[in-house]
Structure formats: C-alpha cells, structure tokens
C-alpha cells in the first residue's frame, strides 16, 4: 500500500493501462503540453508521446465524436472533458451516438470509450462551472456511470472503465483531486456496478456517491459521537449499473435511509434510490426516506452563498436526525 492523492491514483491508472494496452490513448483539451487543466495527465505526454496523448481544439463535439469513431474502429480512447460542464455542448455525441450505436446497429460494433471529467462545486467557479450532472448520463441505456470517492476506487474504477467494452462515464470531483488515501500496489479489480459500504452501521443507511460520501462519513462520525447513532454509509460508486443488492441489504439491516448528492435532488440520484426502496424494501422501512441535495439555485459566486448551496455535514446530520425521529 502507498498513500496517493486522488489525482495521482487517476494518473497511475492511465499510465498503467497505457503500458498494458497499446490501443489506449488520451484525447482532450490541454491534456498534453499543459498536462491537464487539473494535472491528471501530468507526465503522460513526455512518457507516451503526442500520438497517445492528443491535445485537441476546443471542440467537445469533435473530441468525443472522434473518440467514438476511434472506439468503433477498435481503439480504446480516454476522452477528458475539462469539466463536466463542457459535456453539455457534446450531449448529442454522448447520448445519440456513444450510447446507441451498439444497439441500433444490431450489436455489430461496440464503443469501448471512456469519458472522464470532474464535477462539483466549492471552488467559487460559479454557475457555469460548478455542477453535478452525472445522473443525466445515468439516465441513458447504453452508458455506464461511475463516481469514485477514494483514490483506490478512482484508480480501480478508471482501469475497469478503460477495459470495459462499452462507453463509461467516469465522474471525478474538483474537491477530491488533492485528497489522499491508501492505494494497493498490485493490480486490483473493482467491478463496475458494485457499491461499497464505507462505514458499517445499524441505525440508518446513508447513500451517497463521489465527494458526498466524505460528507456523509463525517456526519456519521458526529452522529456516533454526539448521539450514539450508528450510521451506515454506502458509497454507490456506480450509478449505472446500480448495485441494488448492496443498497437493499443495507436497508434491510438499518430500516431507515437517506440519500445525499451534491447536485440538485429534483429528478436526481436520491429519487432513484427512494424508488428502489419503495418498490423492493417498503416493508423494511420504519420511516420515510429523505433526500439531501444541492440547493436548487444556479451556483452563486459569493463564498458564504456557495457554501450554503452545497450539502454540508451539518445538513446531513440534521436530516439523519429527522429520519431517526
């Protein structure tokens, strides 16, 4: 085991997969000479050269479209969107092409494409650069979506995404890049579609993904310390496919549940979990399930306003107490 940042873990995953498979290449804006807007591709241009680390014009549609076409022709492209906000100008390629090509052509061709990008707020980047839209992609059959929180999960899931035969959207988070964690030295596998119980508990299940797992974990510590409540924190890790078994098993144990997501909760990830629980765990629930999401405003610039807009440890703590009341 070595201690690595989330950024380093992603960088290691890319490097190791590029060594393992000559068909893996990276394409995106400023991934090469600039070494990545958030330095995830640092050192890769000098190690692998411009053929395998391709700087691209500011053309998200063409970047991801070229990734799709190259994937159809047998390569393993890893597309970097500088931030999730810029996927919006490429939605037609992602939704109408990447997700549908295998199906509408009767399975003659697969699209082994990885799209990786950071979401999230908290950096005072304001409304157009602080969003969580990962559930938009999780809505679409044909796509897979993963959202790791720990460096070990980030490395493992990115490697599995690169090896997957279908298009995978890998959600990173700006506020996670410098976080640290233990990462195994040897090669390891995390199946896409497997949630992970990050903290065992018996009184309430808190379901979260990406950075909100860390927020939920801190709230769980407070609940334990201040109220003697044992909260279980389930890291979804993957939104599509969704690990329904781990989710249901947790609720069957705790009988109470809440969800936390950084994005707006309306029509969001929490709603999907609640629907699953209504459908398959209704009799196991002792209380209504509650959702926590980002405040339903475009992200403001002012630091106090921004802080108020993003789910906090305090809010998760308060809502957990409501569920347990």
């Amino acid at each position: 085991m070595a201690t690595k940042t989330y950024r380093e873990a992603l960088n290691d995953a890319l490097r190791e997969e590029m060594h393992r498979d000559q068909d893996v290449f990276i394409i995106g804006q400023d991934v090469g000479k600039f070494e990545g807007a958030y330095r995830v591709t640092q050192g890769l241009l000098s190690e692998f050269g411009p053929k395998r680390v391709k700087d691209a014009p500011i053309s998200e549609t063409a970047i991801v479209g070229a990734g799709i076409g190259a994937a159809m022709a047998g390569l393993r492209p890893v597309v970097e969107f500088m931030t999730i906000n810029f996927t919006l100008v490429a939605m037609d390629q992602i939704v109408n092409h990447a997700a549908k090509i295998r199906y509408m052509f009767g399975g003659q061709v697969s699209v082994p494409l990885v799209m990786r990008t950071p979401g999230g707020g908290g950096q005072q980047l304001t409304a157009q650069h602080s969003q969580n839209l990962e559930h938009w992609f999780a809505h679409v059959p044909g796509l897979k979506v993963v959202a790791p929180v720990s460096p070990a999960d980030a490395k493992g899931l990115l490697k599995m995404a690169i090896r997957d035969p279908d298009p995978v959207f890998v959600l990173e988070n700006l506020a996670l890049y410098n976080t640290k964690g233990e990462v195994p030295d040897e090669d390891y596998e995390i199946p896409l579609g497997s949630a992970d119980v990050k903290r065992e508990g018996k009184d309430i299940s808190i379901f979260a993904h990406s950075r909100m797992v860390n927020v939920a974990l801190r709230a769980a510590e407070r609940l334990e310390d201040e109220e003697g409540i044992s909260a279980e924190v389930v890291d979804l890790r993957s939104l599509r496919p969704l690990d329904t078994e781990t989710i249901l098993n947790s609720v069957r144990k705790t009988n109470r549940a809440m969800t936390v997501e950084e994005g707006w909760a309306t029509f969001g990830v929490g709603g999907e979990i609640v629907s699953l629980l209504m459908d398959q765990a209704f009799d196991d629930l002792d209380a209504p399930v509650k959702r926590v999401g980002g405040e339903e405003v475009p992200m403001p610039y002012s630091k106090p306003l921004e802080r108020a807009a993003i789910p906090s440890v305090d809010r998760v703590y308060d809502v957990a107490l409501q569920v347990l009341a």
Partner: peptide
C-alpha cells in the same frame, strides 16, 4: 450498418456522424 462491407453506419442526427468519421480516420 454492415461491418463486413465497411459501412460504419447511417446516422439520423444531421452532421452528427462527421466527428465519428474523424475518429475512424484517427484510428
């Protein structure tokens, strides 16, 4: 779509397949 005859598809969104062609050429 006919892989054997190198037809990589007919597409329904106007202009949407042009970036794909660029990607195939990149490969």
């Amino acid at each position: 779509f006919d892989l054997e005859h190198r037809l990589y598809g007919g597409y329904g969104i106007v202009g949407g397949h042009l970036p794909l062609a660029v990607g195939a050429a990149l490969a």
